[in-house]
Simulated scan of single mutants.
Amino acid sequence: MADPFDHAWSAADAVPGWTTREQGRALWDAVHRLAPGATVVEIGSHQGRSTIVLGHAARSVGARVVAIDPFLDGPPYGGQRTRDAFEANIAANDLGGVVELVVGYSTKLRPTWDRPADLLFIDGKHDYWTYTDDLRWSAFLPGDAEVLVHDCFSSVGVTSGTVAKVLPGSRLSYRDRVGTLARFTVTPPTRRDRLRLARELPWFARNVLVKALLRLRLRPIARLLGHHSPVDPY
């Protein structure tokens, strides 16, 4: 029997974006750990690449997805054209009854938000201030719920926010990662959880160094670090 994920990924992979197949599978599996009637909140949807995976998974378990994005004007966001592409991609996958689009800044929506959620996927603006505010959406989750963070170990803003707020914090525990898609749970962290997170930091430093080498057109040195692609790692 064909894996239903393969169908979902085939649709998602036709949409521009940065989510890899392996990360898509992690999102799919996270939704499949939810009970019927659950709500997934996605912060940062762009053209819907990850939303399609979440939506197909949610439909199969009887859950729903709330996609939050302000659709900013200008590069690299695209404004109204990106929103139009998102809505067209959701419609093409017949996910209109599963995915609810909420247009707005996550940081402005959060203070007045009054709806519970069961899974949080953070892939919004990657600066320190926005990301650390987006972490506060975990307040709408029950205990032991999962928080997935894209580019957790490849973005200076996201990684610094994780080090400043999650590593010494008492709310989220680091579990694992798929590439730089990190998985946390709403559970007070143990010392082992903190050490597990801290051990990822040298890998983050390597990713940042590779990005700098690519900007400086020093690809031969980047290859010495194991990076053989002309594009940024993760």
Rank of each mutant, 00 (worst) to 15 (best):
P4G: 04
F5I: 05
H7Y: 01
H7V: 04
S10D: 07
T19C: 13
T20G: 09
R21F: 05
E22P: 00
Q23E: 15
R25L: 15
A26Q: 14
L27H: 11
V31A: 04
A35G: 07
G37L: 14
V40A: 08
V41P: 04
E42A: 06
G44Y: 03
G44L: 02
Q47G: 00
R49M: 04
V53L: 09
G55C: 02
G55R: 01
H56G: 01
A57H: 06
A58Q: 08
A58Y: 07
S60R: 14
V61T: 11
V61Y: 04
G62W: 08
G62R: 08
G62E: 10
G62N: 08
V66M: 06
A67V: 03
F71Y: 13
F71W: 15
F71Q: 04
D73G: 05
P75V: 12
P76N: 08
Y77L: 03
G79V: 09
R81M: 07
R83W: 00
R83F: 00
E87G: 01
N89I: 02
I90G: 01
I90M: 06
A91E: 02
N93V: 02
D94N: 06
L95E: 03
G97H: 10
L101T: 09
Y105C: 11
T107G: 11
K108H: 13
R110H: 12
P111S: 14
W113T: 12
D114I: 05
P116D: 15
P116H: 11
A117S: 13
D118V: 06
L120K: 05
L120F: 11
L120N: 07
F121S: 06
F121E: 04
F121H: 15
I122W: 06
I122Q: 03
D127W: 08
Y131L: 15
Y131T: 14
D134C: 07
L135V: 11
L135I: 10
A145L: 04
V149H: 01
V149Q: 03
C152N: 05
S154K: 08
S160K: 10
S160L: 15
S160H: 11
G161S: 12
T162F: 14
A164Q: 13
P168T: 13
P168M: 14
G169I: 11
G169H: 12
R171C: 08
L172C: 13
L172G: 13
L172W: 12
R175N: 09
R177L: 08
V178N: 07
G179E: 09
G179M: 10
T185H: 09
T185N: 11
V186T: 13
V186L: 15
P188H: 14
P188R: 13
P189M: 14
T190A: 13
T190N: 10
T190I: 12
D193K: 06
D193Q: 09
L197M: 14
E200F: 03
E200Q: 15
L201G: 05
P202W: 14
W203C: 03
R206D: 03
R206L: 05
V208M: 11
V210D: 01
K211V: 07
K211W: 04
A212S: 09
L213A: 06
L213K: 01
L213V: 05
R215N: 09
R217T: 03
L218G: 00
L218H: 01
R219K: 07
A222T: 01
A222R: 00
R223W: 00
L224Y: 00
S229Y: 00
